[in-house]
Computed example of a mutant assay.
Amino acid sequence: MASGRFGDWTWVIRGIALAYCLGEGVFYLGWLTVMSWRTGQQLPDGDSMRWGFPVLLVGSALFQVPMTGYMWWLDLAAGRRFPRSVRLWLPVAFVAVLSVFVMVTATKVAFPAFLIGAVMAFLGIMALFFLPMALSPRLPAVLRERRRLTRHCSRSVRCQSRDVIAERGVPDRCPGETAR
């Protein structure tokens, strides 16, 4: 593990993750607010969804996506696999589809707006999804432990940290090894 004048190397990962998540997350939420407002203004006066798009879509993106990311981070920090249940990914898919929809309807140019909307939705949703991980004080410890568990594994060498792997309930063999 590389150490330098600043101590541990994980401060670099934390800084990059925070810069990306906060920068892109704020940009995405602002972009989503403007585009959903433009989409809502195309509806007739008196329609309740005229203000529903900016309020509901941005609120949904702001709360549902980071909560899914938070559940993923808790499972990762505890050493468990993230459940791949459809129920957990439905809010993220809902936000992604509606993000692309409001971009296309706000600009009225189908193909370039779809591409730009898809890229913006992907980058913004990833920023909001990883925000709980970037803000977690346990990030350096989790990175160190996961690196320690996988550092010595290879196809030809038996895993040297069997006691740690055995107590976590992970199989006796390293990834890629065959049974003897």
Score class of each variant (00 low, 15 high):
M67P: 07
F6Q: 06
G25F: 03
V119T: 11
L62R: 06
G7L: 02
V12R: 11
P112M: 14
M1L: 14
D8F: 00
V92E: 03
T105F: 01
S99Q: 00
L115Y: 11
V34W: 13
V86A: 12
V102M: 06
G46I: 01
D163K: 04
R87F: 13
T39S: 09
M49Q: 10
F114C: 07
H152C: 15
V34I: 15
L98S: 09
Q41G: 01
D47N: 14
S99G: 11
G30D: 05
L139H: 06
V65K: 08
W73T: 10
P54L: 01
L18K: 02
S154M: 03
P171R: 04
L88I: 10
M120F: 07
V142M: 15
R84T: 02
S136K: 11
A113Q: 15
A113E: 15
G7P: 04
R138P: 05
A127Q: 02
V119Q: 01
T178I: 07
S36L: 03
G69M: 01
V65R: 12
C153E: 12
F6H: 09
T10H: 03
A93E: 00
L56M: 08
T39F: 12
I116Q: 00
R84C: 05
L123T: 10
R158D: 07
R87A: 11
L22K: 04
F63I: 08
A2M: 09
A121G: 14
V142E: 09
D172G: 02
G176L: 11
T107Y: 12
A166C: 08
R151N: 14
S85Q: 08
F114I: 15
G40W: 00
Y70W: 09
A96V: 07
E145I: 09
F101Y: 12
G124A: 11
V170R: 15
A121M: 14
R144S: 15
D47A: 13
V86P: 00
G69V: 06
R155A: 09
V97Y: 10
R138Y: 06
P140M: 09
V55R: 02
S36M: 08
M71R: 15
G124F: 14
R146Y: 04
Y20N: 03
I116L: 14
V86H: 02
S161R: 12
R146M: 05
G176A: 13
T39M: 09
R5Q: 00
P137Y: 02
V55N: 02
A61V: 07
S3V: 01
A179S: 15
I13W: 11
F82T: 15
F114V: 07
Q41P: 01
F130W: 06
T105N: 08
A61Y: 10
G23R: 03
L74D: 05
G15N: 04
A141E: 13
V58Q: 08
V119S: 00
I165H: 13
E145P: 04
L135E: 09
L139V: 12
W89H: 13
P175T: 13
M126R: 11
R5F: 03
S156A: 14
C174R: 04
M133G: 08
P137C: 07
L76P: 01
W89N: 11
R80G: 07
G59Y: 06
S154I: 04
D172S: 06
W37A: 00
V65F: 11
R158F: 05
G40L: 03
W11S: 01
V12E: 02
G23L: 04
F101C: 03
L18R: 04
V34C: 00
C153P: 07
W31R: 09
P175N: 13
V12I: 13
